[in-house]
C-alpha cells in the first residue's frame, strides 16, 4: 500500500509522487528539482492532477504514471533517471501559459536563435559551438515560448555526447565552455531548420512563416494537448523572425555561418 506522498507544481502542472517507502520519495525530490531546474514548488498532494507511483515489492520497484505501467525495475537509480525524464516531459506537455518546443536556443545580440530538432540531431553540439563564439546560452533541449512568442531560458547543463559512443552523455556547465546562461527573455531572431549531413554546405533557403510553423509543430510538445494555444503562440513567435532551412556540416563551421548570417540579415 502506497502511503507516502509528495507533490509539486511546475509551470502550472501539479504532480504527485507516492511510494510505500521513504527513500524513493526523498530521491525523487532531488530528481524533480534537477529535471525542472528548481522551477517547482511543493503543494498539497490532494491538488495534484498527475500521479506517479513507485512501489517496492520484494527486491524490485514497480512504477507508473496515471494509468501507464512502467514495469518492474530492481535498480532505483536508473528508474529515477527515467522518472526524471518523464516528469520533465509531463510538465512540458501540460504546462499552462508556456509552450515547450524541442529545440536548442541561444541568444545573440539580444535576439534568440532557435534550432528545433529531435534528440541526436546535433542540437547540443551546435549550441555549444555558438556559446563558444559568444552567444548566450538558453537551452540545449527546450525553447520555452510565452503567449507573446518570447523565448525564455531553460539552461540545464549541456548534455554533451561522447564522440566515440553517442549513448554516453556528460552534463557540462555552460561556464566550462566559457559562456553564460541567459537570465532574461528574448524575441526570436532566427529559426534554423536543418540536419547534420557530412560535407554539407551552408546554403540557407528562407521558408515562409506558415511553412516554418508547420515545421515547428513537429517539435512542439503540447501540440496535441493544447493545440489552439500552441498554434497562436507559434504564430506570435515567428513574427519578425527569419526562418531558414539547410543541411549543415560540422558544428564549428556552422556556428560561424549562423552568426554571420544573422549579423547580415535585417529583422
Amino acid at each position: 500500500m502506497s502511503d507516502i506522498r509528495w507533490a509539486f507544481e511546475s509551470f502550472g502542472v501539479r504532480v504527485c509522487i507516492e511510494s510505500n517507502e521513504a527513500e524513493p520519495i526523498e530521491r525523487v525530490k532531488e530528481v524533480a528539482d534537477y529535471s525542472l531546474l528548481s522551477r517547482l514548488s511543493e503543494i498539497d498532494p490532494q491538488l495534484a492532477y498527475h500521479n506517479f507511483h513507485i512501489t517496492k515489492v520484494g527486491d524490485t520497484y514497480s512504477s507508473g504514471l496515471d494509468g501507464e505501467d512502467f514495469g518492474d525495475n530492481p535498480d532505483l537509480g536508473s528508474l529515477l533517471k527515467y522518472i526524471g525524464s518523464r516528469i520533465r516531459i509531463l510538465v512540458a506537455e501540460h504546462a499552462s501559459n508556456i509552450v515547450f518546443v524541442h529545440a536548442g536556443v541561444v541568444s545573440w545580440k539580444g535576439k534568440a536563435i532557435v534550432i528545433p530538432g529531435t534528440s541526436h540531431s546535433g542540437k547540443t553540439t551546435l549550441v555549444a559551438e555558438l556559446v563558444k563564439l559568444g552567444a548566450v546560452y538558453f537551452s540545449d533541449e527546450y525553447a520555452l515560448f510565452d503567449a507573446d512568442g518570447t523565448v525564455h531560458p531553460f539552461p540545464r547543463p549541456l548534455a554533451i555526447r561522447e564522440r566515440s559512443d553517442p549513448s554516453i552523455r556528460a552534463d557540462v556547465d555552460v561556464r566550462e565552455l566559457g559562456g553564460n546562461a541567459g537570465t532574461g527573455s528574448a524575441s526570436v531572431g532566427l529559426i534554423y531548420f536543418g540536419k547534420y549531413r557530412k560535407n554539407s554546405e551552408w546554403m540557407p533557403e528562407t521558408v515562409s512563416p506558415g511553412v516554418g510553423i508547420i515545421e515547428l509543430i513537429t517539435h512542439t510538445i503540447p501540440m496535441r494537448v493544447n493545440s489552439e494555444f500552441a498554434l497562436v503562440t507559434l504564430k506570435n513567435a515567428v513574427k519578425g523572425a527569419t526562418m531558414v532551412k539547410t543541411d549543415r556540416g560540422e558544428a564549428e563551421a556552422t556556428a560561424e555561418k549562423i552568426l554571420h548570417f544573422i549579423d547580415n540579415t535585417d529583422n
Binding site: 512502467f70 525495475n73 533517471k81 527515467y82
Partner: peptide, 15 residues
C-alpha cells in the same frame, strides 16, 4: 508526433 515520448532523449526504463 504521435507520442510526447518522441521528444525524450534516449533515456529509458531498464524495467
Amino acid at each position: 508526433p504521435q507520442s510526447v515520448l518522441a521528444f525524450t532523449s534516449c533515456t529509458c526504463n531498464p524495467g
